[in-house]
């Protein structure tokens, strides 16, 4: 698939955990302000690929990366990459809702505070804006000092997304963000993603194929660390070019 002016460009990416090769010559371009889903069976390397974009893999010992990864034309694996700036720009939502055991307010301002914002008024504004963006503000505006852990799982996941929006990212990585949620909550988070894509480039890893089909513009199918197929979601699901993609999406395995 050819994309003009991609937000993210990956070329010939190899990634090794020790001697195990988790990603093999992955090449992919991600469209700006679109939702791109990464699908594939467990262990195919989709989460690993996602963690390439904010360099969370760096925390794993014995990891080695070769190839090119560019965001906005900048090589994020260059020697002089500013990790703080990169992670501000590329935020991540995790599998399980994981608010800190702090108040709702303190969760949202964790990022801004880390980046030096001390002005109470500004922080208040950030909290309001970030919670509004995930449609939680009206419900929570009088309960901001309550523990984040008192919220429902869905609200917790929304809060995690707003905690991320508070640092004003460009790209949002979601690593199976709905796997701990029930179907109704899942649907609501997906609706939220549709709103967010107006402002953010979104990558979502999922092993829920209906979710990929429903919620994403482009779909990337991986198997054993390799790219099998990449294209507009509709085409990948209705008219896959590769036999292996067809086997997977029709439920023959996975």
């Amino acid at each position: 698939m050819i994309i003009e002016k991609p937000k993210i460009k990956v070329e010939n990416l190899d990634l090794y955990y020790g001697s195990f090769q988790a990603l093999k010559k992955v090449t992919i371009s991600i469209e700006e302000k679109k939702i791109t889903s990464i699908i594939g069976p467990s262990g195919c390397g989709k989460s690993t690929l996602l963690r390439v974009f904010n360099r969370m893999n760096d925390l794993v010992e014995g990891i080695r990366i070769e190839g090119l990864v560019e965001i906005d034309g900048e090589n994020i694996y260059a020697k002089d990459t500013n990790m703080v700036a990169l992670r501000k720009k590329v935020g991540m939502v995790f599998q399980r809702p994981n608010p800190f055991p702090l108040s709702i307010y303190d969760n949202v301002i964790y990022g801004p505070r880390v980046h030096g914002e001390r002005n109470r008024k500004k922080l208040d504004e950030i909290v309001e804006k970030s919670l509004r963006a995930v449609l939680l503000f009206d419900e929570l505006k009088d309960k901001l000092d309550r523990s984040a852990l008192s919220l429902s799982l869905e609200s917790q996941q929304r809060l995690c997304i707003s905690r991320l929006l508070a640092v004003q990212p460009d790209v949002i990585l979601l690593d199976e963000p709905c796997s701990a949620l029930d179907p109704m909550a899942t649907l609501k988070i997906e609706e939220l993603l549709q709103v967010l894509k107006n402002d953010y480039t979104i990558l979502i890893v999922t092993h829920n194929m209906q979710q990929a089909a429903r919620a994403s513009d482009n779909t990337f199918y991986m198997l054993l660390g390799e790219m099998i197929e990449y294209g507009p979601t509709e085409q990948v699901f209705t008219n896959p070019k590769d036999k292996r993609t067809e086997d997977y999406i029709t439920g023959r395995f996975g």
């Binding site: 969370m56 992670r87 800190f100 880390v114």
Partner: peptide, 27 residues
């Protein structure tokens, strides 16, 4: 202290020390 908390903190751009001080130590 769950590893997740550290990951979240790093993913928000916090340094290691900010993570230790902000999330790990309080818990």
């Amino acid at each position: 202290v769950p590893q997740q908390f550290r990951e979240v903190s790093f993913s928000l751009g916090a340094s290691r020390w900010q993570t230790v001080r902000g999330v790990v130590l309080p818990n």
